[in-house]
Each structure stands twice: as C-alpha cells, then as structure tokens.
Design a protein around this nucleic acid. Structure first.
Lengths: 106, 106
DNA sequence: CAGTATCCAAATGGATACTG
DNA sequence: CAGTATCCATTTGGATACTG
C-alpha cells in the first residue's frame, strides 16, 4: 500500500490508501461510531486478529483513523475516523450501495 | 478476488470484484471509451502486460467489461464497459474525486 | 498487435502460541 | 482485552523470452 513513485492517476492514489483487503470494510464500520478492537473483530470476521491489527496500524499511519489507548486494566482502546477518514464517506457509501445491488442480483 | 464463502458486508462484495490492484484504474480509463490493449498499457504504465491481461480477463469473467476480438492481421481487440460496468461509475467517480484531493494535499 | 509461458522474488495471509 | 511473534502456505507481481 505504500508507494514511493508518483501515482499514475487519482484512482491509484485512492487505492494505495484504502486498497488493503479489509481497509474499506473497517472504515465503513467506523462511520459515525467509535469501536474497540474486539468489536471490530466481530464485525469483520473474515479478518484474523493479525490482519486486523496490521490494517488498523496502517490506517492510523495514513491518518484515516484515530487510536486512543486508555491506561486501564483490562486494556481498552478505541478506534474512530479522523476528519480525513470522514472525507472518505462518499466513496464508502458508493461502494456499499453498489455491493448491495450485486448481492441481491447474484 | 473469487470468494466461495458469503460476503461479510456489501463493501466486501464490491472489493471482491474491483479490489484487484489495477482493476478500478482500468475501469476508470474505460469510462465512455473503447480502448485497445496497447492503449491501456500506455494509460496504466504501472501494470505489466502480464498483470494487465490477467486483470482484464477477470473483469471480463465478472461481466464488467466486454472484449471484442477482430479477426484481422495485425490482431485487434477492443475493451469497453458492459452495462454492469457502467453501473460502477459512481463508485469510480467518488474514488477519483477523493484521490485528486489527497494528491494536491500531499 | 495482443498477448502467453516460465521462472522467480516479494507480499499477503492464516494458525498457533504467547504477552502486558 | 488488545494485541505481538513466529512459522509457514498461498498469492501476487515482475522480468524475460516467446507466439499467432
């Protein structure tokens, strides 16, 4: 997902940030919500814990989501969309609408 | 890009069809156009010929693009969006708009 | 022109076990 | 709870050479 060279087009830029296998799914679940790690695990059952934490880490690095760690026992973390992440909502909505159509069709 | 299990959400379904590294870029270039293989190669320089033909084949299989082979010498083929492919335009547009924004910002 | 074949390197992803 | 570490299998992707 990281590219050092220049993008060949705007779509390329978008894909390089949200093209990860589970990234758009994670972002979609975070729209208007604050979720903890195990809540995301339940919502994205197709991703293993390893994959989930990896993708979350990259999304944090790319400034699309916030991660807040509460220094309590047992550990508690919360993930939410940043402003930048919120700007993706139109993209996620379009993907979701199209996905719904092909699910009922198939 | 093929999944036998059920999708965990609509976004998942969309990703499984257009989540390939170059698929959305190819589709975007085909909006309102009919392009030949070598034209697509120039437009998507980040993809090798192998990758391009592979992704095109999958897109044809998934019913998103048409491939027309003209029985002439030298060989000539043309790729275009199907009706189903056209229904993706809102998704591609959203991805493109967002990509433009992050390119100027970065 | 429009690809395919082959070989190989790198990235991705899953299972299991473990930690603060 | 919220992860990380390790190992390993699969997938992806690039380079090069070749074909109808």
């Amino acid at each position: 997902m990281k590219k050092k060279h220049e993008y060949c087009c705007p779509i390329d830029a978008t894909i390089s940030l949200i093209g990860g296998k589970y990234k758009s799914i994670i972002l979609w679940h975070l729209i208007g919500k604050i979720l903890r790690f195990n809540e995301l695990q339940k919502l994205v059952p197709c991703a293993t814990a390893k994959m989930l934490s990896q993708q979350l880490r990259e999304l944090v690095q790319d400034g699309l989501i916030n991660k807040v760690i509460y220094p309590v026992a047992p550990p508690k973390t919360e993930y939410s969309l940043t402003e930048h992440g919120n700007s993706l909502i139109p993209v996620l909505d379009a993907m979701c609408s199209w996905g719904k159509k092909i699910i009922v069709t198939s």
